[in-house]
Nucleic acid binder design. Structure first.
Lengths: 121, 121, 121, 121
DNA sequence: GTGGTCTAGACCACG
DNA sequence: GTGGTCTAGACCACG
């Protein structure tokens, strides 16, 4: 899986990596149990500091998406806990996006098609 | 329209205000041409620095949502330009939200119902 | 409130600080709304790096014990969420401690007196 | 006695095994003089490295919980030395747990009942 | 070899 | 002035 950093983005690097890994897990590109690159390898690949990647892995671990151990490095968790609900912050954020899309003249149907597209990725 | 600040949020205050105003315009709570409170009035009401509100208004103006003049203060624009498309950053953000929702066990249908709900507000 | 670091402890510095602040909140030495030292001030006082203190504050924030904002620095939260139950890891840890105490010949009553003592601090 | 490793835990594997054996001795599940599995057998059973089990046994021996000899392997000690007091680190750790439990809204009585439960296991 | 911690120093956005 | 992020480099325990 290829991680791409937008250096001009306001989103911190560790969060950009986090988001891309979460999307990779969601799409199935990263399977349960699959090995992630080591902290050092990913840092080298992206051209950033190991601390930054380490921060990403700790966040993903705390969120329950991955597990880390010193022998095997980081791996995608087999059974990710499912709350069954969208988080409050994501709900608020979704509402903001919908509002902006509506003001831009994007129809409800177009948004739903977008979501269908994301689900079939 | 009542602006509520979440002091525990990581979203900067000026952005929280901006988002709520945009959502207010989208929902129709704020009509085209409608007067917004003055910078000072809003700052006083929320209990924050005038600089912060000022930053919000400048952003909204630059985004084309409001217009300001010295005589009338800030007003919601009558004809907000419609690009017809969702912005790149919102698209990426939407994809992230959908990914996280899916991993949480939220179905496509539930997400779409959420969107319907936001559209009818 | 005075933070003391045991440099020979296996407990990481950021966690030692975290633990002492949590104990300070629990005992009432740190009141809700009370200002914590700035990251820089605390780092200087203890003689450690600002990053380490920053890590502590971010952890405490994520756990819901404190809140941070750029204007006011870090403050103890007024309403700390109460789950009403002891966490799984604390439960396991408590069981381990009880087991070791029992093997050391410490009676049930002595342990309970210890707890009474901690509660009245 | 069955040893269960939590691969998601931050507690090192050798320490998880150590803790479970200590708890087994405390509860009486492991009697004085009882034979422990060989390093190899336990490593195989749990599916970990023999080095890790070996580290556990060395720690337990050093702590005075078990004794090892070449002929009989590892056995639970008949007379475990009783200091009569809780160790400093366990005292500190107990205080931390009590603090967190209190902040979570757990009453003194509930904690004591937990301890009673651990003592009667 | 792996992730985890820490330092010394820097720059940034927010307010 | 504040916390948040990031770098370059180091050392450590675990396995």
């Amino acid at each position: 899986m290829i991680i791409k950093i937008d250096e001009y983005s306001d989103v911190p690097i560790y969060m950009q990596i986090r988001n891309q890994i979460v999307m990779g897990i969601s799409s199935g590109e990263l399977k349960g149990g699959e090995q992630l690159p080591t902290v050092r390898a990913l840092a080298l690949e992206i051209g950033i500091n190991t601390m930054t990647v380490s921060k990403t892995y700790q966040l993903l671990k705390q969120e329950g998406y991955i597990m880390t151990d010193r022998k095997n490095g980081a791996r995608v968790r087999e059974n990710i806990a499912q709350s069954g609900v969208i988080s409050d912050s994501n709900r608020t954020e979704l509402k903001r996006i919908v509002s902006e899309a509506r003001l831009s003249g994007v129809s409800k149907e177009e948004l739903k098609e977008l979501i269908d597209g994301f689900y079939s990725e």
